[in-house]
């Protein structure tokens, strides 16, 4: 197990190098001048351009640029934005909001998704089952920005239950969290239902009944534990995704998260900002995935890592 974790951690090194290189190359290789329009209506003075070019090693070949950048990164130096703020500070400022949003979304997925799936699976063909199947289909088919805007109008404006946009409190993240989690929530509900229905027909559930176990125990212990394994791993992987920020949801609810930062970075050709943020996201994603794989082994004893 320990060896497996170490191997997985070592595997992350080439992955991180590869992804950062691709991102770095893509951002700086984009056609156009990164300093166009940075100085208002006038063209930027040559002195400014030469200073910035030196600062970001832009006159070096791409590989050298990237190498110098990575050396800085390894030393914990994330660099500065064009405006001169430390990128690391901006990340530190924005990341907690993204994490909060992701956690809220995951809680919705866990609680509502699993509950809906279990109820639907136990009463297969019943009213709730059909309700879950139809409503999840609707959620899956509608783009997230539509759900976001409808949620703002209905819950935020008409009912007035929750704030329409982000005001710096966790409370105002509930609605965007729900919107962000809604798509995966639908998948979780369906996955849970399918697994439950399948496992209810399995031989070991029949054995549990034949052992004289009460119905509650047959379902709650024998069936549920097995049905939850794929659902939990799905939710874990989804958490890794959500920690990468949510450009659309953050945009709709005006949330200053990482997604928003990356979006603006790409728009303004802030190569250093984008690369730094993506490096962090890749690392987080890889670590969460490793955690999910370990969780999978913990839930299903048939899986062992050597």
């Amino acid at each position: 197990m320990g060896r497996y974790v170490i191997r997985r951690l070592l595997q992350m090194i080439p992955v991180v190098i590869g992804t950062t290189f691709i991102i770095y190359t893509m951002v700086w290789a984009l056609p156009g001048d990164p300093f166009a329009g940075k100085c208002g209506d006038r063209a930027c003075p040559p002195a400014y351009i030469s200073m910035m070019t030196a600062e970001y090693n832009l006159d070096e070949p791409l590989l050298v640029q990237y190498g110098l950048y990575m050396v800085d990164l390894m030393q914990g130096n994330f660099g500065e934005t064009f405006r001169g703020t430390e990128i690391v500070n901006e990340l530190l400022q924005r990341y907690p909001t993204t994490v909060q949003l992701a956690v809220i979304a995951i809680v919705f997925e866990l609680v509502i998704g699993i509950a809906a799936g279990v109820v639907a699976g136990l009463r297969r063909g019943g009213f709730i089952d059909n309700l879950v199947l139809v409503s999840t289909l609707v959620v899956v088919s509608i783009p997230v920005f539509v759900i976001g805007l409808v949620a703002q109008i209905v819950v935020g404006v008409q009912l007035g239950w929750l704030p329409v946009t982000y005001d710096g409190t966790v409370y105002s993240l509930i609605l965007p969290g729900f919107v962000l989690g809604s798509l995966s929530l639908a998948y979780v509900a369906r996955l849970m239902r399918t697994n439950l229905v399948e496992n209810l027909r399995s031989d070991y559930v029949r054995t549990a009944t034949a052992k004289g176990m009460p119905q509650k125990r047959v379902i709650g212990v024998h069936t549920l534990r097995n049905s939850l394994i794929p659902v939990v791993t799905f939710i874990g992987a989804d958490f890794g995704n959500l920690l990468g920020g949510a450009i659309v949801t953050e945009g709709i609810f005006n949330i200053p998260g990482v997604g928003n930062m990356i979006f603006r970075g790409i728009r303004d050709r802030e190569g250093a900002t984008v690369t730094a943020a993506v490096t962090i996201l890749v690392l987080v994603f890889l670590l969460v995935n490793l955690f999910v794989d370990l969780l999978y082994a913990a839930l299903d004893p048939r899986i062992r890592y050597e």
């Binding site: 399995s202 031989d203 070991y204 534990r225 097995n226 394994i229 299903d300 004893p301 048939r302």
Partner: peptide, 11 residues
């Protein structure tokens, strides 16, 4: 039962 592998709970 016939098939003990599938009749025992794997987890």
């Amino acid at each position: 039962f016939q098939d003990a592998l599938s009749s025992l709970n794997p987890v």
